[in-house]
């Protein structure tokens, strides 16, 4: 028998209206209407001569055959019973009742199809070796530890290969100091050039105050006063605002003892050199691998920073700070 569907239901409607539908066909139609309730109205419009009862001008369809009691096997409920049977939810009595109904209504093939919907696993499909899934008792390493380990390896490599020289790191104080020294050197050089010019102009006069060999180091010895300038050390000279270059004394060199230029050594106690005072515990924070940590951070989509504190006075590293994402690590040297 042809199965009812959306393309042929009108034929079933007609058979139903004309009373030519078998019990199985009637069951099919009932099931179809329960699944497509909007078509029940269409059937109603077509009119049902046998079940038609006139109430005033309205014709109504006897819908009793559409109603269902789940506890009773009927055309509407038989599918649910079959599924319950397949699911193993029926007791012996219920199963016998279902078998009888199926047999009486020729629903064996439909029931068989339901029975075929039970899936059986293909045991030949296996995970494979389960060794990698097995564990031994021990420390559980959390997932984020992988990122930490990766970062640690990168930092280890970074420490092995010196990507940036710490010698180039200059603090703000040092920059100011260097600028000050350069300005002073510039002044001294200017004064020196002026003095040299005067000497050259009076080339006949032998001037004992100038050492020309080294522009970076101009040491002039005057009794009771020393002026020294160098940019090699982070030191500032005591420097008179009125340097001798502004005034060349009119000396009688024939009678005076000859003044010999003297190279002053650093350790010379007569050298009036004053170091910039630094606080004993002043530290400078350096971020030596900023480029590397930034790039690694971008790769891992985590903020990564590595800084270290250097004691300015001794160049000794006293603290390290490492941050990756929400995790921060500090290591400080004990006092």
């Amino acid at each position: 028998m042809e199965r009812i569907d959306l393309h042929n239901y009108e034929a079933f409607f007609l058979d139903h209206l004309e009373g030519n539908l078998s019990e199985e066909g009637q069951a099919e139609l009932s099931m179809f209407l329960s699944e497509n309730p909007q078509l029940a109205a269409e059937l109603e419009e077509m009119g049902d001569i046998s079940d038609l009862s006139l109430i005033g001008s309205e014709a109504t369809l006897n819908k009793e055959f559409l109603k269902a009691d789940p506890s009773v096997i009927s055309a509407l409920t038989v599918d649910d019973w079959m599924i319950d049977s397949v699911e193993g939810n029926l007791d012996e009595t219920q199963q016998a009742a279902l078998d009888a109904y199926v047999s009486q209504n020729g629903l064996q093939s439909s029931f068989r199809v339901y029975q075929n919907t039970i899936l059986n696993p293909d045991k030949s499909v296996t995970f494979g070796s389960t060794t990698e899934l097995k564990r031994k008792d021990g420390l559980v390493i959390p997932f984020y530890a992988k990122w930490m380990a990766a970062a640690a390896v990168i930092l280890l490599i970074a420490n092995t290969v010196d990507f940036s020289s710490t010698e180039d790191v200059m603090t703000n104080n040092e920059v100011v100091l260097a600028e000050s020294i350069l300005d002073k050197k510039s002044n001294v050089n200017a004064e020196t050039r002026k003095l040299n010019q005067i000497i050259e102009d009076n080339s006949t006069v032998e001037n004992p105050y100038v050492i020309r060999e080294d522009e970076n180091l101009v040491d002039v010895v005057i009794p009771g006063e020393i002026v020294k300038d160098t940019i090699d050390d982070l030191k500032i000279d005591i420097y008179k605002e009125d340097p001798i270059v502004n005034y060349v004394p009119d000396l009688d060199t024939s009678s005076s003892p000859k003044i010999i230029p003297k190279i002053i050594l650093e350790e010379d106690p007569n050298t009036a050199v004053v170091e910039i005072p630094t606080k004993e515990n002043e530290v400078v924070t350096e971020e030596p691998f900023k480029v590397l940590t930034n790039r690694t951070g971008n790769l891992l989509n985590r903020e990564i920073t590595f800084t270290r504190d250097r004691k300015k006075e001794t160049d000794e590293y006293v603290a390290y700070h490492f941050k990756i994402g929400r995790f921060e690590f500090d290591r400080k040297k004990s006092k």
Partner: peptide, 11 residues
């Protein structure tokens, strides 16, 4: 449990 259920879960 690995021995018993790994294949089942995999399937």
């Amino acid at each position: 449990c690995v021995d018993q259920y790994a294949d089942n879960i995999y399937r």
